[in-house]
Amino acid sequence: MRIGCPYCGERWNDEFIVLGDADALMKRPGEAQFALFYDYVYLRDNPAGRHRELWYHQGGCRQWLVVTRDTLNHTVHSVETARCVAQDREAAS
């Protein structure tokens, strides 16, 4: 699998470390409520098909990326930096 890093260009996936569901992991609850944190820490969907995931370009620019990947065939549909995604979300809220 190859990921098109916005900074470094297309690279093989051995340069990256995967963390998991980007939308779940980036929505850290603002309120200190146990139920919200339980979901945040433990509950994940496991979709067959398109999935937005966090990948860290450890062997390159050290940026966290949001990679939209098809879990059925590893097609990478889009790559954004997590920073941009997080900033857009903050701007929208």
Binding site: R28, L54, Y56, Q63, W64, T81, A82, R83, A86, E90
Partner: peptide
């Protein structure tokens, strides 16, 4: 730890 800190900064608190 480096990876964790980068995550916290870039994905949680980019501002």
């Amino acid at each position: 730890v480096m990876q964790h800190l980068e995550f916290c900064h870039q994905a949680l608190w980019p501002d």
